[in-house]
Simulated scan of single mutants.
Amino acid sequence: MNKKVIVIDDEKMILDLTAMVLQHRGYEVFTADNALDGYEIIRREQPAIALLDYMMPRVNGLTALREIRQRFPSTYVIMFTGKGSEEIAVELMKAGAADYILKPFSNANLVDRIDAILRLRSIELRNRELLEEREKLLEEIAEWNRELERRVAEKSLELERAHAEILQNEKLAALGHLSAGMAHEIRNPLNSIGLFAQILRSGVEHDPEMVSYTAKIINEVERIDDILVRLLATSRRSPFQLRSIHVQEVIRQVVASFEEQARLQQVELVTEQVGEPPAILADGDELAQIFTNLIANALFEMRDGGVLEIRLEHADRLLTVTVGDTGKGIPPENLTKIFDPFFTTKEKGTGFGLSVVLRIVKTYGGRIRAENRPGGGTRFVIDIPLG
């Protein structure tokens, strides 16, 4: 227990007498004949009790009491006063005095009062420590809860993404079986229609109107055949040739092919490469198809200008490509549908482009996700394993 006591009184006899009594009872005593010196001793020694005279020159006892309680809250103050009015007692207690002693006082009364205040101080300081510990524990519990909620949210998001990937895989597998059968069943009569249309055209060459009709039939046949080719591409890999490919070179070539369109639309093309990613074993045409689809979609959404950003980086055996635009973004309800075959918001779209992108990314063991950018626009993030 802290048994340091400071006596602040402008009467030397009180200082000497009080110091002698308290030292005899085992207290470590410090004295000061004015409040300013007393502040410095309290700051340096941190006594448990300050015995403070009510009437002093320079700084009076009431002012000193308030100052000590504000600056040194762990030092409890007992006031000496020669005025025993009830008003002064109330004023002192309101200002923060732990007790007050009337002059003249007996040695026994002085010691008993100090012992009582020390016990009170010990209890209150312990309670304060317990409250601080309680607050600290509550904050730790709150932090644990926040961390638990964050981890649950992360795991829930991972499960949602895994579930979405499973559904996408199932859709692509089902589409593969469906498209293969459809292509076979549709192409046979389609070839017959195209053949007979060509025969008809050769027999009506003298009639321009009939020639235009047959030309329209042939064009529609070719359009349907093109749709079938795209449909097959979403689920079945075309003939490919694997070789060592630098993705940054593929991106550069694809971006170059869109430079004129971007200039006409007043779209700024920004490419960024972090480090020097190693080459990967891939088919260059397949990789080009990924970026062609993403850049074409981005430019479609920025017909009145904007910024198209492509960032390439790698870390931890993972190559990451981010393609972002400043268009109007994707409605939240569509974010889980954009990779579905046939899903499109374009008036003349087929809904195959992003399905093909997904199929190619998965071919290389990668992942792709779409998200809306905080400042507006859309961002596609592609992760492809290195090796």
Results as ranks from 00 to 15, higher is better:
223 R>F: 11
203 G>K: 14
248 Q>N: 14
229 V>E: 15
206 H>C: 06
242 L>I: 15
202 S>L: 13
248 Q>T: 11
234 T>Y: 02
196 F>L: 12
239 P>Y: 00
211 V>W: 02
214 T>E: 11
219 N>M: 13
211 V>K: 03
226 D>N: 13
199 I>L: 09
205 E>M: 13
228 L>W: 11
233 A>M: 06
241 Q>A: 08
217 I>Q: 08
249 E>C: 03
203 G>D: 09
215 A>M: 10
241 Q>D: 15
209 E>L: 05
201 R>L: 13
222 E>W: 04
205 E>R: 10
228 L>F: 06
249 E>F: 00
216 K>C: 06
219 N>T: 14
237 R>D: 11
239 P>W: 01
248 Q>I: 05
206 H>N: 13
192 S>V: 07
222 E>T: 13
222 E>H: 15
218 I>M: 09
216 K>L: 09
217 I>Y: 10
210 M>C: 05
209 E>N: 06
204 V>R: 01
203 G>Q: 14
237 R>H: 08
200 L>F: 11
199 I>A: 05
237 R>I: 10
240 F>W: 07
230 R>A: 05
237 R>S: 07
229 V>C: 06
246 H>C: 08
196 F>N: 10
232 L>R: 00
203 G>S: 11
228 L>P: 00
242 L>H: 08
229 V>K: 15
191 N>K: 12
219 N>P: 00
249 E>G: 03
243 R>V: 03
225 D>H: 04
219 N>S: 14
207 D>Y: 05
224 I>L: 14
195 L>E: 14
202 S>T: 14
231 L>K: 01
232 L>D: 03
221 V>M: 05
222 E>S: 08
239 P>C: 01
247 V>F: 02
196 F>S: 09
201 R>E: 14
236 R>Q: 07
197 A>G: 01
239 P>A: 07
229 V>N: 12
234 T>D: 03
197 A>K: 02
